[in-house]
Simulated assay, not measured.
Amino acid sequence: MATVVWYTLTYKVPAEPNRRRVALWRRLKGLGAVYLQGGTCLLPKTDDHLRALKVIENEIAEMGGEAVLLESSALDMMQGEKVVARFRADRNEQYEELVDKCTDFEAEIAKEIAANHFTYAEVEENDEDLKKLKTWYAKIKALDFYDAPLAPEALSRIAECEALLDNYAHQVFARQDENRSPKDEV
């Protein structure tokens, strides 16, 4: 592994109000940061991350807190792999949750088919759910800096959901009265 450089943000903010501390944590996690411990997190060294961290550093100061932003690298390959493993573990956790939601999506389609519920409204509702899954995948993938192992499975499950919805939509279309030809009535 080549030398990897991260931005390290270490900070301390007032305990109250708690909502500000939680909002800060959520913003950092939303950028894809991993925490080494409370108040110390890492992000890969990119211009976008530097800009975001500088803004956060200023916000911490406005809260009455303290922050130090540093560039850091691992002392050796093993230490670097530990950090990369943490990034991958965080993304894998998100991919696992997404895969679980794909299972829920598949169960919903199966339930509609079992109930003989073939309506355009159901197709539209499930199409919206599929769009949410795809958007969620894109958000996770954008934070997957080190190619988490579960990414291909998550992408495959999204494709399976899409194929399942396409199949269901074709069944709905075929069952609608206005789509039947007179010979189907015989």
Rank of each mutant, 00 (worst) to 15 (best):
M78A: 15
L155D: 06
L98C: 02
R157I: 01
V22L: 09
L24I: 11
E66W: 14
N116H: 13
L130V: 10
C102K: 03
R175P: 00
H117A: 12
E97K: 10
L50N: 02
D104L: 13
L70H: 07
L28T: 02
R20H: 14
E71V: 07
D47K: 13
K132P: 05
D166C: 07
A138H: 10
E178S: 07
K132W: 13
V13M: 08
K139G: 11
D48L: 07
F87N: 01
H49R: 12
E112L: 13
K139R: 15
V172M: 01
G38H: 08
L43P: 02
L130D: 04
F118W: 05
F118N: 02
P182S: 09
A174H: 13
K12N: 11
A110E: 12
K111E: 11
G32D: 01
L9Y: 07
V4E: 03
P152F: 04
D147A: 09
K82E: 04
G80W: 01
R20M: 15
A115H: 11
P182I: 11
E153D: 10
L36G: 06
E108F: 04
Y146W: 09
Q94F: 02
T46W: 02
L42G: 04
V13C: 07
N126A: 00
L43D: 01
Q37S: 12
S156D: 15
K134L: 06
N179Q: 07
A52C: 04
K132R: 15
D147N: 14
A107W: 11
W136F: 11
T40W: 05
A151T: 13
D100Y: 07
A89N: 13
A61P: 00
V99M: 14
M77V: 15
K54E: 12
E153S: 11
V83Q: 06
E71C: 06
M1Q: 04
Y95Q: 01
R91E: 00
L143N: 09
M1F: 00
E97Y: 07
T10Q: 13
N92V: 08
E71G: 04
S73V: 07
L164I: 06
D166Q: 15
A33N: 04
L133A: 06
E185L: 12
L150R: 08
E97T: 12
D127N: 13
V186C: 01
V83W: 10
